[in-house]
Design a protein around this nucleic acid. Structure first.
Lengths: 168, 168
DNA sequence: CTTGACTCTGTAGTCACGTACAGGGTTTAT
DNA sequence: ATAAACCCTGTACGTGACTACAGAGTCAAG
């Protein structure tokens, strides 16, 4: 164990200031401990060094990696995509072409989705106004909804895993 | 069994043209069989009549109900909300006040979300343009992502279960 | 009366992204 | 040397809206 500690210290001096244990990394990065382990299991984080006792020892670079992951997530990339990007990078290629492709697709999706949302907003607001004016009639569940045209709901709505629940 | 069949036929003549079996209802409504059973279990569809053998026999009104559900879904209501609306209606009250409330909330959410999406779009498109101009540098995974400001991602992103995966 | 299409119940699995234990072992400060 | 604080693995749970399946029973046509 002294050996490992020494190694960690050497690293701390020579290569990096210090190795982080999972709790420190969690605090510094804002990513929960469980999530860190989950990322490791999912291949988003490399398996870190360990102490003799089995504790994970992260290099400080991991903070950069995590920042990358968070940013990419905020940009709407799924963990699977992020993983792929990282893997491409590791294989020496520049993943940016791929990233660019994804981004272009995302932009297109986004535009479609925003158009749809505008339509939807119009519908909702229109229905609301109408209802305000007319009051509720009998014999149906709610005219507000029943009166809404549906005109064959757009087929999409898949693949925009984007921007869900990236906390903080 | 003759009794039930007779009842079904009476219904077919007197009240409604015919009772639908689950497969027919599924085809006519476009809602999968399993989903229909799931809706029943979730309280979105009333328990239908049954043949002696236990087959579900749906009144044609069920099509209206399903259309209602689909429309509400397209409008961004969750199944839980839809269920509540239907329940309120059954209890004699007009759910429209409640619906209106939900709709108002939805509109607000929607506006926020659209604003966020516009921001996001700008970020993405900006990053893309920048990348196109600058080419890729070394030493990082992808400047496209790494260069993106993150400025503390918006806290929201919850409660807009809206418009996900309403198929067809 | 038999065949094949249909339907039944109940349980389990899917997706994405984690969170929450339980039941241990390790490190560190005193 | 001991207690507090930390960490380990593995599994199960949570969401929302379904989908899949197994194994059994029912219905309509020929």
């Amino acid at each position: 164990m002294t050996k490992t500690v020494t190694k960690a210290v050497e690293q701390g001096r020579a290569e990096r200031r210090r190795a982080l244990r999972i709790g420190e990394l969690s605090k510094l990065s804002g990513v929960g401990i469980e999530a860190l382990r989950f990322y490791e299991k999912s291949g988003l984080l490399d398996r870190p060094a360990r102490t003799e006792g089995g504790y994970r020892l992260y290099a400080e670079e991991t903070l950069d990696r995590l920042a990358f992951i968070r940013r990419a997530q905020v940009l709407g990339f799924s963990l699977a995509e992020i993983k792929q990007i990282i893997a491409e990078r590791r294989e020496g290629g520049s993943p940016c072409a791929h990233v660019r492709e994804i981004v272009r697709g995302r932009l297109k999706e986004l535009d479609e989705r925003m158009a749809e949302m505008r339509r939807y907003r119009r519908e909702l607001a229109g229905a609301l106004a109408e209802w305000d004016a007319a009051g509720d009639a009998e014999g149906h569940i709610c005219g507000l909804i029943e009166g809404t045209e549906i005109e064959h709901a757009p087929a999409r709505e898949r693949g925009i895993a984007a921007r869900r629940k990236v906390k903080r």
